[in-house]
Design a protein around this nucleic acid. Structure first.
Lengths: 228, 228
DNA sequence: CCAAAAGTGTTCAAGTTACACCCATGC
DNA sequence: GCATGGGTGTAACTTGAACACTTTTGG
């Protein structure tokens, strides 16, 4: 309540967005090259507009950088260490987003200059506390994959069970037994066969799609899965 | 990045804290009577100091209202609807805290006037979006109870298995089978018998305490437990 | 016919659920 | 001796984990 002291300088409020996608069988994160302030890379973000909701601000950042809308976006955590930005007090509400690689490559954001997808495993030291934000986001992602059907946001409309399994293996970082995976994933009812098969090189796979695109908890979560 | 426009009024930043405890076998929430702005009850909270970390601000609120420190406190969610406070733009980082009833009754906060513990089931319409914050906090609480050992923050140092079970029943809102509860809780290793027995009215119970007071995930979470 | 990915079942171990009676104490 | 809360075991079922071979297609 000690608000109206003289000389009270209100903090700035920003959002930063951790945007994940899968490229070349690796989990990637979108980074931007800094043009002012501390040099190097950082997460995409920006200040919250005067009459803008927090999620709107995050959505705006996401759209400006990737050109996509209607993707999975959720609030992650708010970072407010008084010294997290050397230039002054900035409180950042971090969001995390999942986009499918094809959605992004289709329509690019308007300012793609200075943007770079970087494999999570090779992320350099980022500006501010952005490595910490990223680490937080990564934990949340793994958790969401195990307990919910978020995986839909990382895949195109149609996909084979092998495609789906690969995404789980990449994000969870371990191999999964094919037979157990299939039994379990099908028992959740989160996907349905569309009977359409691709015309590829080998035996054609049954293509699936998600039954719904609302986030949902899985009845018997993917505890540990099993070795391949 | 459209920050440095003229006339940009930075939002105020506050924290609000949802403080739960158990009183008379009911889950209670601490509310404060409003003295300015919208009338009625609201959650305890206050503006974030100029050089204050967010969690510090929440901790300060908690201490001022309840007189307790070192209790379970975690960041919940950040609420930032531009119209959530009719007086102007205020972004609120909500926290949620668990205290044991005995800890609070022991040492009271400095300004107890206007404070009231209210049973969750009888909470009236609160100011701003505080009912929404509360609802969010309640969901988080239930989740944490099922998947972690947070329950330690709601109990005194020594307690019987019946005490413990009662807390679960109150928070989860369902009856639990005694035998299954005991087997499971003991198998987690989160509590240990201290062999001390009370001198009460009936057959004395074995008293337990928690093996550690760090938040920890439970290996086989309390899925549904079982009917009594 | 061969390389490559798709597809498919069973067995054993572990965990979950349902369920009912005796025990120790104070009064 | 009785009321009250404390304490205990087992059987049926469900879920989890480990494991290997056959099928289909293109080239």
């Amino acid at each position: 309540m000690s608000r109206k002291k003289d000389n009270f300088i209100p903090p700035s409020v920003a959002t930063d967005v951790v945007i994940f996608t899968i490229i070349d069988d690796e989990l990637n994160v979108l980074t931007v090259e800094r043009t002012y302030g501390p040099e190097g890379w950082s997460l995409p973000g920006g200040f919250v507009g005067e009459k803008e909701d927090l999620e709107e601000a995050a959505q705006r950042t996401l759209f400006e950088k990737t050109g996509v809308k209607d993707v999975y976006l959720e609030q992650l955590y708010t970072f407010g260490d008084p010294k997290r930005d050397p230039r002054g007090r900035v409180i950042s509400i971090a969001y995390f987003a999942l986009v499918s690689a094809e959605a992004v490559s289709a329509k690019n954001g308007k300012d793609t200059k200075g943007l770079k997808w970087q494999p999570l495993k090779k992320i350099p030291k980022l500006a501010f506390d952005h490595n910490e934000i990223l680490s937080y986001a990564t934990k949340r992602l793994v958790w969401k994959m195990e307990y919910t059907n978020v995986v839909y946001s990382l895949l195109p409309k149609y996909f084979s069970l092998t495609d789906l399994q690969k995404v789980y293996e990449i994000v969870l970082g371990r191999d999964i037994d094919k037979r157990n995976f299939r039994r379990k994933i099908l028992s959740t009812g989160m996907i349905k066969a569309t009977k359409m098969k691709e015309g590829g090189a080998h035996r054609p796979a049954i293509m699936y799609q998600f039954t719904d695109k609302d986030i949902r908890f899985i009845s018997n979560p993917f505890g540990q899965f099993l070795k391949k």
